[in-house]
């Protein structure tokens, strides 16, 4: 047991780990936002509600279908993603030709509806979700205690984030996606079904949010408003990183999570606001964002 700047190392490292966990969620969510924004030119305000739906799906699957956490990791993103695709087909697709702000307003309205409905049926207090048995316990690393589940969340989200980056930046499918972002008309002329690609992209982005929700369920309680405050922080993360770069979204997400964790140790009063303060500073120094290409 040793101390760093008068803080016991144990407390420091455990807050760092919590920071990394929050950072995983920021990264997964801002990645989804960036992917959706790239294709649809819409800021998906429903993202927080869809994250919450992912957590609730995990809860339902365990409670009513007896399906374990591992099943939830696959089923919840698919179901919530399909739900997203229905929204895209029935509502969002009519807004692509309008000003961006209508997309924001529509998805904000959807978030109100979804959260309102869940609050009416499940109340504001959280529902507990049991951790899977295989991930209970932890490792003693000498300088700190590492709970298995938390290690799993950080590693799993890193893998998912890097996988998404690989698909978008390094594969043929990703090349189509990037091309369709630049010039949808031309890509259509090559015989690629761009509207279907847009629908699938939205479904994928929403699925990422739901996946984050499932992973969050055993750590935080499952509650209807778990997404709404988180999404505002994620917006700040997106402003800091800029949505132009996939890797930028991942790095910014994890980095800000760690900074937030450290703030909790050294200056707890500011832990809620530190990300917003960083956003203000970044806007002053680099208005386009850390990874933004143009303003």
């Amino acid at each position: 047991m040793f101390e760093i700047f008068g803080i016991p190392s144990n407390a420091l490292f455990s807050q760092l780990l919590i920071g990394l966990i929050n950072g995983s969620f920021y990264a997964l969510l801002s990645l989804g936002l960036a992917v959706i924004f790239g294709m649809l030119n819409i800021i998906n305000f429903t993202h927080g509600a869809q994250y919450m739906m992912g957590a609730f799906m995990a809860f339902f699957l365990l409670q009513y279908a007896g399906l374990s956490y591992w099943w939830a990791l696959i089923v919840a993103p698919v179901v919530v993603g399909l739900f997203g695709m229905i929204i895209e087909r029935t509502m969002l697709q009519w807004l692509y030709k309008l000003d961006h702000l209508y997309g924001l307003l529509l998805t904000f309205g959807l978030a109100l509806i979804i959260e309102g409905v869940f609050r009416n049926y499940f109340g504001s207090s959280g529902l507990p979700y049991a951790m899977p048995d295989s991930l209970r316990g932890g490792q003693n690393l000498g300088f700190m205690f590492l709970p298995n589940y938390r290690a799993w969340v950080v590693v799993a989200s890193l893998v998912v984030c890097l996988g998404t980056w690989f698909v978008i930046e390094r594969t043929r499918l990703g090349a189509y996606l990037r091309a369709a972002t630049e010039n949808p008309t031309l890509v259509r002329a090559f015989g690629i079904n761009v509207p279907r690609m847009i629908t699938l992209t939205y479904g994928f982005g929403v699925g990422l949010a739901a996946l984050a929700g499932v992973m969050a369920a055993p750590i935080y309680n499952v509650s209807p408003q778990m997404g709404s405050d988180l999404i505002i922080v994620v917006f700040a993360v997106v402003v800091i990183g800029g949505m132009g770069s996939i890797m930028g979204a991942i790095v910014t997400g994890f980095g800000l999570g760690v900074i937030e964790g450290l703030t909790k140790v050294f200056f707890p009063e500011a832990s809620n606001t530190v990300i917003f303060v960083i956003m203000a500073i970044v806007l002053l120094i680099r208005p386009a964002g850390l990874f933004g290409r143009t303003a």
Partner: peptide, 17 residues
Amino acid sequence: RRQGIYFAMITLALAQM
């Protein structure tokens, strides 16, 4: 300092702060 959709997100984030 930022346009369009970012403007909305910045104002929201500052208000939350």
